[in-house]
Design a protein around this nucleic acid. Structure first.
Length: 917
RNA sequence: GGGACUGUAGCUCAGUCGGUAGAGCACUGUGCUGAUAACGCAGGGGUCACAAGUUCAAUCCUUGUCAGUCCCA
């Protein structure tokens, strides 16, 4: 008789090899067919609503690892909330307007772009965005992300566009919206505004380099010396900036004294070659209340201001400030309430405000202005300077900074900034330092410039009076436009005349004119996405605000803020209860991933090589709150951990092939100590894992489950019970008891891991539990009767440490030729630690099973020939007595006593005789 | 240059309310061949980024430096 056939060896159809990359698409197909998202919605109906609101990715290009990381994290949260008895919907969104798409479309058109109307270009942008929404959607599905893909939110949909206009209108009515001047990059040749992305840099641009004297009022022969490379901006000068902390000295020159930064004085001497003497220190505080004269404009009072933007890299430490012609100057100007002068028209030609230079192109005026200052003696020195200067991407001509009318949202009005800063204290920031970071950003935030001079976006519904040029926008006109957009989309702004978009009887408030033209500005796309909580959560009746926003840490400046301002202004509270951020993708060496570095890994490469579940497991294998590394070695490690989990699940299933959870289940009160311990550990792991899920520390979920699989299960419990599972009678109470435990562990792992290993857990569920159902409509198991038994836990820790020591002793015994393997051994164990021996005595008759040896006994009296092991147990290893049972491989004295089956022990004999004859 | 974060074994992470550190994986060796392209066991491996300060004592506190990352200028 072949006794092997009488064993209950594991059986399962669950494949060892996951073959994820090939098999995952099948699951996705199935989920689509079964409408898994709708099913989950149905099974969650009526439960507590929990909303993770999706920050819309930009509908341009294929997804990268940053998207994958972000979406998987969101998906894990949504799934684990659904599995904890919440109703957690997930509406995916896409950011569809904006320059990058317009840029791509125009670039593709090339020279033909000029022949196209704005309306035609917008149509192409819309198609372009729609295409990438579909592409990205497929990729997100491939990642196993569950979402309402049939009803996503697109910022270019008519409903959403109408929502944007409505929110803009609300803010306008509350008085937050105003029109002001702001310097922007401007190409005088193309007569157009340029965004940062439309600018190229010429590294070897040659500019004039001039030192100019600004006389200090009421101080004879004292000047502040400034340095600049743009003489043409001097007519717009209104201030000179000094650094509050730098030391300043006088440079003396034939009776004249020039204030400059001490550290730069040597550089100035070298640069100019002038024979200047470095004189005494200047108390700049005393200068605070005085002002300067302009070098060539009479009657202009030039303020002295202080700012940290002044550097010691170049110049004199005194910065010529023209808020109409420079970003930093503009910001400083806002702080000091300086006028914004910009006497330059759209062709970069001086206007009448520039006096004698009217009609002259600004670059040509440089020379003339320098001549003027040479004449009146205010130009100390001039030369040339080579540096990097911006030029237009289209015509390659040099660009200028020019103040233009722009639309703003006021952040100081009605204490909005203070309200926002207070509001964020009620938000839970994960990690907690997010609050500090946000707070610092809000504090220094200037008014939000909402307008862009572009085609692809939501128009700012403003009109200009044809007669007097006054801007026309009223509560009524904004409301009317929102209504029109609701029906036709914003494209109508570009196709209809002003008359058709204005309220009847619209009259200019200034001159009473009735003829208007449409303004051409569109809204900043950050406004589009910033109002998503209105346009999605409110408009769809999902919730007033979101439970969670989860994005990369760059969004403190971006979406978290663009969402916060309108929300606090209108709802008087933040749009989110919790804000979670994740770090950025780095390569294996901790370097940022970038095209230029060539270390970018597309998510599809990982999915095709390893599968989405491996990618998902990678997401939770590291702490995403910090930066997160990616590379082949890391993926290999994750793949190994995956295998361990998969094999554990498979082993559980394979030993349950003959188990029926209804018929064969053994009640908890009939469990032995080992099983009580096992379910105590299970209950502990379950509790910890749920805690870790709810604090969004997913890497701890992963580590705890992995550790449970490796240490508690694989190395200990499963190893011990194999003997019972295989060799005991199929129907024995003991075997059924262990199977009951295995079953519950399987249920627990399958569900607790489902938010992470979305595909694999579904595979387990369909193979083992219910081919028609889905693990994702289930909930985390409860196991109310399984208590965390601290006494058992600590007892088994002692048993475990004893087992370690015994194995060390057996290793030695093997080396000494006493035994060949563990089951050949019979061990005697003692220790000086009485408490430990007392614990062991409680389990004395089970310890041979737990240690997996043929003989085990405890002793109070150890002798010198005992091996003293690191955990302080003393052990003697002998060769087991009796013979090896052919069936169960354990050494028993009873082997040979049964004539019918001379190679079997008592237990196996009985099983074979009862069940197999 | 400013704001924020990170730096513990090859890797991913724990940890110490201040008393010179732990786990899993990987690695090496080994057993088994009834989880078998599996499974078990044993072993090696860290001046806790660097420097100074506080302290009887610092990886943990303070300051600075270096490296990496995000945002801003």
């Amino acid at each position: 008789m072949n006794y092997r056939d009488t064993l209950n060896l594991p059986k399962t159809d669950f494949p060892m090899r996951a073959n994820l990359s090939n098999r995952e698409p099948g699951f996705i197909e199935n989920w689509e067919k079964e409408k898994i998202y709708d099913k989950i919605r149905q099974s969650s109906k009526g439960k507590d609503v929990f909303v993770l609101h999706d920050g819309p990715p930009y509908a341009n290009g294929n997804i990268h690892m940053g998207h994958a990381l972000n979406k998987v994290l969101k998906d894990i949260i949504v799934k684990m909330k659904n599995m904890q008895g919440h109703d957690a919907p997930y509406i995916p969104g896409w950011d569809c307007h904006g320059l990058p798409i317009e840029h791509e479309v125009v670039k593709k058109l090339g020279k033909k772009a000029k022949e196209k109307t704005q309306d035609e270009i917008r149509k192409m942008c819309r198609e372009y965005a729609a295409k990438f929404v579909e592409l990205q959607k497929q990729d997100f599905k491939r990642l196993g992300v569950f979402a309402d893909y049939d009803n996503p939110y697109l910022t270019m949909s008519h409903v959403y566009e109408a929502g944007i206009v409505k929110v803009f209108g609300e803010l306008f009515k509350k008085g937050y919206i105003y029109k002001g001047l702001k310097p922007i990059h401007w190409c005088g040749n193309c007569k157009t505004a340029l965004a940062e992305a439309e600018i190229e840099y010429n590294d070897s641009h040659v500019s004039p380099s001039i030192y100019v004297k600004f006389p200090i009022k009421n101080r004879d022969n004292e000047y502040i010396l400034i340095w600049t490379t743009t003489p043409w901006t001097l007519p717009a000068n209104v201030a000179v900036a000094l650094h509050p902390d730098f030391e300043y000295v006088y440079l003396e020159n034939n009776g004249e004294k020039y204030v400059v930064a001490k550290e730069l004085s040597d550089g100035i001497l070298k640069d100019t070659g002038l024979d200047l003497k470095i004189g005494s220190n200047v108390n700049t505080k005393e200068l605070e209340d005085t002002s300067l004269e302009h070098p060539f404009i009479k009657d202009r009072d030039i303020k002295i201001i202080f700012g940290n933007h002044v550097t010691l890299e170049m110049g004199t430490g005194a910065v010529h400030t023209a808020p109409g012609h420079g970003q930093e100057d503009y910001v400083a100007g806002l702080k000091y309430n300086l006028p914004i002068l910009s006497p330059v028209n759209d062709r970069a030609v001086f206007t009448s405000e520039a006096g004698e230079w009217e009609g002259m192109h600004v670059f040509k005026a440089n020379e003339s202005i320098m001549e003027k200052m040479t004449e009146n003696g205010s130009l100390l020195y001039s030369s040339e300077y080579t540096h990097s200067y911006p030029k237009c991407w289209r015509c390659k001509k040099d660009v200028i900074f020019r103040a233009t009318p722009q639309w703003f949202m006021q952040v100081e009005k009605d204490g909005l900034k203070e309200k926002a800063m207070t509001a964020i204290k009620d938000v839970k920031w994960v990690p907690s330092w997010g609050e500090v970071r946000m707070n610092n950003m809000l504090e220094n935030r200037p008014d939000w410039c909402l307008s862009r001079q572009r085609a692809w976006g939501v128009p700012i519904p403003a009109f200009t009076c044809e007669k007097c040029g006054e801007t026309y926008m009223t509560a009524e006109s904004v409301d009317l436009f929102a209504e029109i957009v609701q029906e036709y989309g914003v494209d109508i702004w570009f196709t209809k005349d002003a008359k058709e978009l204005l309220p009847k009887n619209a009259k200019c408030s200034k001159c009473g004119g009735e003829e208007f033209s449409k303004e051409k500005d569109i809204l900043d796309v950050w406004f589009d996405s910033g109002v998503s909580h209105f346009c999605v959560l409110n408009e769809r009746g999902i919730s007033e605000i979101a439970n969670i926003y989860l994005e990369g840490s760059d969004q403190y400046r971006g979406w978290f803020q663009s969402s916060l301002w309108p929300s606090v202004a209108i709802k008087s509270k933040p749009p989110y209860k919790e804000v979670i951020t994740h770090g950025f993708m780095l390569d294996e060496n901790g370097r940022a991933m970038s095209k230029s570095q060539g270390n970018v890994i597309p998510p599809m490469n990982i999915i095709n090589k390893y599968g989405a579940d491996i990618l998902r497991l990678w997401v939770v294998s590291e702490n995403y709150q910090d930066n997160i590394k990616l590379g082949d070695n890391l993926l290999k490690q994750v793949a190994d951990a995956y295998k361990k989990i998969r094999f554990t699940l498979r082993f559980l299933m394979s030993n349950l092939y003959d188990y029926d959870n209804v018929k064969d289940r053994v009640a908890y009160q009939d469990f032995d100590d080992l099983c009580r311990w096992a379910v105590s550990r299970l209950a502990g792991v379950k509790e910890q894992v749920i805690t870790d899920y709810n604090s969004y520390t997913f890497h701890k979920v992963f580590q705890k489950i992995h550790l449970f699989c490796v240490v508690d299960l694989s190395n200990f419990y499963l190893d011990i019970i194999k003997d019972c599972l295989y060799s005991d009678a199929k129907d024995s109470q003991k075997r059924r008891m262990h199977q009951t435990v295995l079953y519950d562990i399987l249920v627990a792992l399958t569900h607790l891991l489902a938010p992470i290993l979305t595909f694999t857990c579904e595979e387990v569920y369909k193979v083992f539990f219910d081919e028609q159902g889905s693990v994702h409509t289930g909930v985390f198991p409860d196991f109310a009767e399984y208590e965390i038994n601290e006494e058992l836990n600590s007892d088994f820790e002692i048993i475990s440490s004893m087992k370690e020591d015994v194995y060390r002793a057996i290793e030695q015994a093997k080396n000494n030729g006493i035994v060949g393997n563990n089951l050949e051994s019979s061990v005697i164990v003692g220790t000086d630690e009485k408490e430990k021996i007392e614990v062991l005595k409680k389990y004395e008759d089970k310890l041979n099973e737990y240690v997996i040896v043929s003989g085990y006994s405890l002793t109070d009296t150890t002798t010198d020939d005992y091996y003293v092991a690191p955990n302080n147990f003393k052990i003697k290893v002998n060769k087991a007595t009796g013979e090896k049972c052919e069936r169960c491989w354990i050494f028993y004295d009873s082997v040979g006593t049964h004539d019918e089956h001379p190679t079997l022990c008592d237990r196996c004999y009985n099983v074979v005789v009862n069940d197999y004859s």
